[in-house]
Simulated scan of single mutants.
Amino acid sequence: MCPRVIASTPKFLMFDLQKVNETEHMIFGADYIVVAPRTAGCTLHLASTHYRLKVGQLVLLAPFNPFRLSLLSPGRQGKADCDVLHFRLNALGQTFVDSVQFKAIKQMLDDSRSGLLFDDPHSEAVRQYIEPMENTFDFIQVLNLLGLLNHLSAKQPLRCLINNCVEISNSKRAEDRVQMALKYIDQHLGEPISVAKVADHLHMADSTFSRFFHANMGTTFRQYLIEQRVRQAARFLVTTDWSISHIGTEVGFSSLSNFNAKFKGLLKATPREYRAKHIDMRKGIDTSRSVAGQVTKQFYDNAS
């Protein structure tokens, strides 16, 4: 297997295939998880119950389903062996995930909140997708993942492992929290925003929110905030006649030098160069309605 791109790191965007390590505590994974035993002796502890998995069986879990694995020695053959595949849908794009072609897979993933157990007597059909998987950025790895999901979506699960999903396993709740975080960032973009402020808004601990945001967005909170500020700055450079320093302040950068550096780092041009390249888009700006920014809005709000 190639050097791995580990889950919950900036480079991990879609999936991470890894050998599982036995743990004493429940894991609250922020990704979809496929558990595929290679040998006998693998026991899945899910919520308050446990299931002894057989070779050829496979379990699909939605984000935030608490689980752990016990790997008992099957006789004298050594420690039990099991593959665990973490994956997320962000990198595929929402348009693709919501498409008709993806509908059966999407339904299966929604159902996986209850923990789906598949029993495939022809397990080589699953292995043909899992075996070639390597944690690289080659496009064939995307096809392997989609092939596996398509194969499973055409099968009837042997059973659902959880009758009543615990609250934390509700992926809809996770999606709602993500949207709350993004909305808060968007509404306070020009203000000093910190992990602590957004975490408090969501009633989460700072460290928990950081891991949660990274797992669901595929990027760190700080990097996402910078990207949103630069994106908004680019709009203002084209649609207003504000000075560059004013725009930097408007979108929340503490200094002009910091604004220039972050802007160039993402768009490969300084704000001044970017505005010059898009000069044709600014025709009629003198007669167009001014865009009310956050600094201007705050001035009038305080004056009233």
Score class of each variant (00 low, 15 high):
Phe67Glu: 00
Lys19Asp: 14
Lys283Met: 08
Tyr51Leu: 10
Leu71His: 10
Ile244Pro: 01
His151Arg: 13
Pro157Lys: 07
Leu182Asp: 11
Lys54Ile: 01
Glu24Arg: 09
Phe102Trp: 15
Asp111Ile: 03
Asp31Gly: 05
His278Lys: 08
Phe87Gln: 03
His122Met: 09
Phe236Trp: 10
Trp242Arg: 12
Ala104Arg: 14
His246Ala: 15
Ile140Arg: 07
Tyr129Glu: 05
Leu44Asp: 00
Arg68Tyr: 06
Asp16Tyr: 11
Ala80Arg: 03
Ser8Cys: 08
Arg231Tyr: 11
Ile27Ser: 03
Gln294Cys: 06
Thr39Tyr: 10
Pro121Glu: 04
Gly284Val: 05
Leu60Gly: 01
Val20Phe: 07
Asp286Pro: 00
Asp206Val: 08
Ile185Asp: 00
Ser99Met: 11
Gln232Phe: 04
Ile279Met: 09
Asn258Val: 10
Val126Phe: 09
Ala7Phe: 01
Ala125Ser: 15
Ala47Asp: 15
Met204Asp: 01
Phe299Met: 09
His188Lys: 15
Phe212Lys: 03
Gly190Tyr: 11
Leu69Ala: 02
Asn135Ile: 03
Gln107Ile: 02
Thr95Glu: 15
Asn170Trp: 04
Phe299Thr: 13
Cys82Lys: 02
Thr49Pro: 00
Phe96Cys: 08
Thr49Asp: 14
Leu69Ser: 01
Leu161Trp: 08
Leu202Val: 09
Leu44Glu: 01
Ala62Glu: 07
Leu182Trp: 03
Cys82Ile: 15
Leu17Val: 02
His86Phe: 12
His122Thr: 13
Arg282Asn: 01
Ser114Val: 04
Arg159Gly: 04
Ile244Asp: 05
Leu61Gly: 00
Arg229Val: 07
Phe259Asn: 12
Ala40Gln: 09
Thr95Trp: 03
Ser254Asn: 14
Val84Ile: 10
Ala104Trp: 07
Leu146Cys: 05
Gly293Lys: 02
Pro3Cys: 04
Gly41Asn: 14
Val20Gly: 07
Gly252Tyr: 07
Gln77Trp: 11
Glu134Ala: 10
Gly93Trp: 11
Pro157Cys: 15
Ser304Asp: 07
Val59Leu: 05
